[in-house]
Each structure stands twice: as structure tokens, then as C-alpha cells.
Amino acid sequence: MYEGAVQDLIDELGRLPGVGPKSAQRIAFHLLAAESADVGRLVAALQRVQAEVRFCVTCYNVAEGEQCRICRDPRRSTDVICVVEEPKDVVAIERTREFRGRYHVLGGAISPIEGVGPDDLRVKELMTRLMDGTVTELIIATDPNLEGEATAAYLARLVGPLGLAVSRLASGLPVGGDLEYADEITLGRAFEGRRRIDA
């Protein structure tokens, strides 16, 4: 145990995800030895996150101000919405540069065993966005695990009557991988989702 302030800092750092007691101690001593300007920037960044970042009123991505950068961008198409679980997923899809539409962040996936049902996610908000008729296509990009698949099935059933084009991200073999190491479930899905090559 260290004295007062140092121990408090170690305790607070130790509460962060992925930081154990040893790492917390290492970070604390790094901060103790750091220049006060560096520490000042860290403190300011933490405070700004607290004060300024909220959720976009349209898509529930993290945003500074009312709307996020993507919803404010007039060049992005308004007729396609890509549904994701978390803001992290928006960033991942943005990195592909393949998608030029808008997003909708659900805030998780349906997981009854954790007590998370459709009412705990931003499903109603999605339905409201789809009602006005500007959106013609919905891409469901929830995680390819059990909860994500179930959420996709639920959404597909819910928006079915609206007559939109609904699609689900493909799953299959990772690019750059070896076929023989793929597990049979993933490989089976890759077979199911195979596509024609036009010669």
C-alpha cells in the first residue's frame, strides 16, 4: 500500500477494463514522473469527453453536439441505413471505405440470458427513422455471433412488412487465411453464402 494520493490513483486506474493491479501501479508511477504539461493534457481530454461527448440524436453514435459527423454530412446517402451494435462498429465499417450511407447504433444485441430484450435497445428509434419512407435499404451489421444473429432475425421480421431491401453482412473465411484451419461452422456459412464469379 502506498500513501493517500498515489494509492487512490492506483485504485482508480485499476478499475479500468484490462488494467490489473500491476499495470495500474506502472501507469501511476509513469504519471508521477511525467511532465506536468503531459498530465494536464490527459486531464483536459478526460474532462472534455465527460462534458462534450453525447449520443447523436439521429443514429446514437457518439457525437460532439446534437448530431454526429456522419449524420451531418450531406454527401452521404440517406436511403441506406447500416445497423450496428456499438459505436466501435461504425469506426470499423468506416475504415473499409465501402459504405456511403448512414448508420444506426442499437447499443448492444438481444441477449435474454443477460436480461437484454428488444426494448432495451434502440429498436423503436430505428423504426421511427424507417417510417418516413426515405430509407429504401437496410443493412444489418450486427456481430456474427449468436446474439448478433438473433438480433438480425428479430429486426428482419420487424421491418419485413415495410417492404425495404434488407440484407445481412456475409460471413465466411477471413481474407488471407487457410481453408483447412477454418472451423466447420464458419466454412459451412462460407459455402452457404458463396457467390457466382462472372467470367
Binding site: 449468436l146 428479430y154 421480421r157
Partner: peptide, 16 residues
């Protein structure tokens, strides 16, 4: 999993 997750009533019943 994949068959059950594709059918929402079956998924929620299966989780229970």
C-alpha cells in the same frame, strides 16, 4: 445455434 438464432421465438425459448 445458427438455426435457432435465425428464428426469434426459438432463440428466446432456447435461451430460457
Amino acid at each position: 445455434g445458427s438455426v435457432i438464432a435465425a428464428d426469434y421465438p426459438a432463440y428466446t425459448a432456447g435461451t430460457a
